[in-house]
Simulated assay, not measured.
Amino acid sequence: MVNLVCEAILPDCPMKDVEEIEKSIMTTYKKSIWAKFLKAISDFDMIQDGDKIAIGVSGGKDSLLLVKLFQELKKDKRKNFEFKAVSLNPGFRNSDLDNFKNNLDKLNIDCDIINTNIWEIANEKAKDYPCFLCAKMRRGILYTQVEELGFNKLTLGHHFDDVIETTLINMLYAGTMKTMTPKVPSTSGKLELIRPLIYVKEADIIDYTKTNGIRAMNCGCTIEAGKTSSKRREVKNLLAELEEKNPGVKQSVFNSMKNINLDYVFGYTGGKEAE
């Protein structure tokens, strides 16, 4: 049976000191997270000298890790770039927002929070399924704010599993063959979106989060919490079943996006847009 409830990730212990958490990135998770983060940046030439990079922080496990990785990267004095954590509050409950701010403080993350009422507006205008409108509004506001602050790049916390889930969602429900790319220009063309976690598996991010005692924000959204079905949740569970029966299925889906033979498709279109 498909589980449509957004499950919380419970830490295994109280949050460790930030120094110990940072050390774990370069020791315990050096191979599974740090090396893959560096490889993605290198493979896709994501960062250049003089870049001003905004890091989109949702408060979840992926974006909190992403900021810590950039903090470690910045310690390399050969890297000439600036970065700043930026968060969009779509209307979190006070308890969720307090937990988010507490995590930022304990993890030594300086983050600008942009307060909005996106969830309220989306639920009013599209009550049956507000996800599309919500996502569109969040992207529009975040991109605009980041551009106005003078950044030329926005980095997002999408990981390996997000890529393969998006691939299948587009195939199964949209009838198209596309996925999240490592970097892509924003709709306005003023920003470049980059995804340095594209090689990092969600299971390793979860392990890092739990082992270090980080109580990352769960979905505050009523849609993901089970108000209606989530196509991403359905696909995630389908992939888990397939991977259990045939280890390597996820990697094959990921690799397929690098091995498209245009001689064996009915047709194709060109052009990129920010996902």
Rank of each mutant, 00 (worst) to 15 (best):
E202G: 03
A203F: 13
A216Q: 03
G226T: 01
G226H: 01
R215H: 07
T228G: 15
G220H: 12
S229H: 05
R215L: 11
N212Q: 10
A203T: 13
R215C: 03
S229F: 02
M217L: 15
I223M: 14
I223D: 13
E202W: 11
M217T: 11
D207W: 08
K231P: 06
K227S: 13
I205A: 06
K231I: 06
I214S: 11
R233E: 03
N218Y: 02
Y208L: 13
A225Y: 11
D207G: 04
G220M: 10
N212V: 12
K231D: 09
A203M: 14
R232S: 05
E202Q: 11
C221R: 14
G213C: 11
C219E: 10
T209V: 08
S230N: 02
K231W: 00
K227C: 05
A216D: 03
T222K: 12
I223H: 12
E202F: 09
A216T: 05
K227E: 12
D207I: 07
T211Y: 04
I214Y: 10
G220W: 05
K210L: 04
I205V: 14
R233Y: 02
K231F: 00
N212F: 08
N218H: 07
K201G: 02
R233S: 11
K201D: 06
K201S: 02
S229T: 11
M217K: 15
I205H: 07
I205Q: 08
S229Y: 01
A203P: 01
G213Q: 10
T228W: 06
G220I: 09
R233W: 01
R232N: 07
T228M: 15
Y208A: 06
R233N: 09
M217F: 11
T228E: 15
A203K: 15
Y208M: 11
I223C: 11
G220Q: 11
T222G: 06
